[in-house]
Amino acid sequence: MDRNKTSLLKVENLTKIFKIGGLVLGEKLTAVDNVSFQIESDKPVIFSVIGESGSGKTTLARLILKLIEPTNGKIFINGLDISRVKSKEDFLNFRRLVQPVFQDPYDSFNPMKKVDNYLLKTALKILKVSKRKAFSLVDDALKSVGLSFEKITGKFMNQFSGGELQRISIARALIPKPKLIVADEPVSMVDASIRMNIMNLFKELNINFGINFIYITHDLSTAYYLSDIMAIMYRGNIVEIGPSSLIFADPLHPYTELLLKSIPEVGKEWKEDIKLSGIETEEYGFEGCKFYNRCPYADEHCKKSRPILIDKGDGRKVACFKYDDNLSRALSKSLK
């Protein structure tokens, strides 16, 4: 396992197939489709996974958090093969390593339980510290998100605002000082005036505590603001992955290009008309590139076979035949 030591996250041939509907007439939906990638870095990173609804980004997050089991493939976090996490002890170690922050702060806590219960339990059960130590750890974590134990103790979920609750849920995730926090759309339910504070909090925690983040989002502008590395997902596949500054400056994949053009940005007014895909679910079953029917560059080859991620050399990988030199050469030869 030595070769995995250095990488924060390594995903190998990861596939998750959901069965929808009954036993007989049920359909299969490949939410994550044979995804492989690796995140390596000397310093703590914020890695964004960007996708629209149905891209498989949330499924990927849930697989990494081991909330669901993959149909196929492996995930290594900091060298740990998470499919081997089985016993109680394994799970404790796993939860010291990885912690989640979910989208909706209002469904992250049971409305009938006091909120401080979650934080104290995290210290007591995950870290197995004494009660006194637990109180101070919880207070420290809350202070780093701009709250304190005094402010939250004895209160229930409905006594907090959405922004406060989301900060509490981040504080809880911080308590075990995890290597990795997986945040699934953590700001999509909070208001603009609070969103920036949470974004900045992630940045600070990343720099000051050395915590790595996986930021799952549909929002390109916050992903750009936050992340060092990003992956773009489309219908279960990663279509482009690499340093965010590079991707935003010069998107390679036609889908990334389309996404960037669709951001409602201040200062740039939209001009051209765009094509909308009508029937979305059909694309899962495509034999070739899943973006085929929306792609302005697509040809017959894209319809027949599926592109794989190829290294572009500058730290970026892209899954598009446009950039597959060998293939274009082979194609041009066969045409002659």
Partner: peptide, 9 residues
């Protein structure tokens, strides 16, 4: 989604 949003707007 952003792409659909743009189309409708």
């Amino acid at each position: 989604d952003v792409v659909v949003q743009k189309g409708i707007l």
